[in-house]
């Protein structure tokens, strides 16, 4: 029923728009996308070009964020780093959502021992300090941004699986599912047309928060030297040199960190905004 659906979106949109923080978060996320797409046109410098006469220069009109130990423009590297961060955030969360949704759906739908096995698996995975697990696997593989995204995704699906399972279990019992059964809809049609779309809204929220988490994890890995490898700029690996030169060059530490902070903050605000706008119990 198209009329009703568009009404739901209108209500969502109106509530979302009323939340200034969420809108601000959304705008910053959009700007970040534009910046990472247009990076080569925003800055006159090349992220990898060295200038040994301009080593560790403090911020100035020429170099807004200063230069690093090889004379590269930090502003340029931060902007190019945005691309890596967004890519990691989205691919990792995409994997986590996919795996989590399938496992949650299968668990709830089949129930019984299948559910039991999957949920115990979730429990076990949740016991591990995730960062240890990621570190152990990444360090044994060839350094590659794809491995990083896959591993972050494969260690982050458990929350989504639990969410989807809980949603599906409750949706399964609703009247409209019964009605769909009664008119003879197939299992697959019920799952994909009626159950999944209704179960996805909490997943959307956790995905938005998950992007923030994945960006934090990638930057921490790169900071430790086993994430994105230099010379490819990432916020984490710029901070590594920030640490090495902390006594002489505060700008190397300040700006990439601020970039992470602003990005993560925006995704969190966006996610919370979506949650509040979706939640019918909050009538503000």
């Amino acid at each position: 029923m198209p009329i009703k659906e568009s009404y739901i979106y209108q209500v969502f949109w109106r509530r979302f728009r009323g939340n200034r923080f969420a809108v601000a978060g959304g705008i910053v996320v959009l700007i970040l996308f534009l910046v990472s797409l247009l990076a080569p046109w925003i800055t006159p410098y090349d992220p990898d070009s060295l200038d040994l006469y301009q080593v560790l220069m403090p911020p100035s009109a020429d170099h807004w964020f200063g230069t690093d130990e090889l004379g590269r423009d930090v502003f340029t590297r931060v902007i190019f780093g945005a691309k890596i961060s967004l890519k990691v955030g989205f691919v990792a969360v995409g994997i986590a959502v996919l795996v989590g949704t399938v496992i949650g759906l299968v668990s709830a739908y089949y129930g019984g021992w299948v559910d039991n096995v999957f949920m115990r698996f979730v429990d076990i995975m949740l016991c591990f300090p995730t960062f240890f697990l990621i570190l152990a696997v990444i360090a044994m593989l060839e350094p590659s941004i794809w491995y990083i995204m896959i591993i972050i995704g494969l260690t982050g699906w458990m929350g989504v699986a639990r969410l989807v399972r809980a949603e599906v279990l409750s949706i399964r019992e609703r009247d409209y599912i019964m009605a769909a059964r009664a008119i003879g809809a197939s299992d697959l049609r019920i799952i994909f047309r009626h159950v999944l779309p209704n179960a996805m809204s909490p997943v959307l929220v956790s995905a938005s928060l998950g992007v923030a988490g994945a960006i934090l994890t990638e930057s921490a890995l790169s900071f430790l030297g086993i994430g994105v490898q230099p010379p490819t700029p990432s916020w984490g690996n710029i901070l590594t040199s920030g640490k090495d030169y902390i006594e002489f060059a505060w700008w190397l530490s300040l700006f990439p960190g601020l970039a992470i902070l602003v990005t993560v903050l925006s995704y969190n605000l966006l996610g919370e905004g979506i949650r509040d706008a979706l939640d019918p119990r909050l009538n503000r």
Binding site: S219, A220, I260, L261, V264
Partner: peptide, 10 residues
């Protein structure tokens, strides 16, 4: 919200 977003190592 700031606390959520600050990278620990930073």
């Amino acid at each position: 919200f700031l606390g959520f977003a600050v990278p620990t190592f930073w």
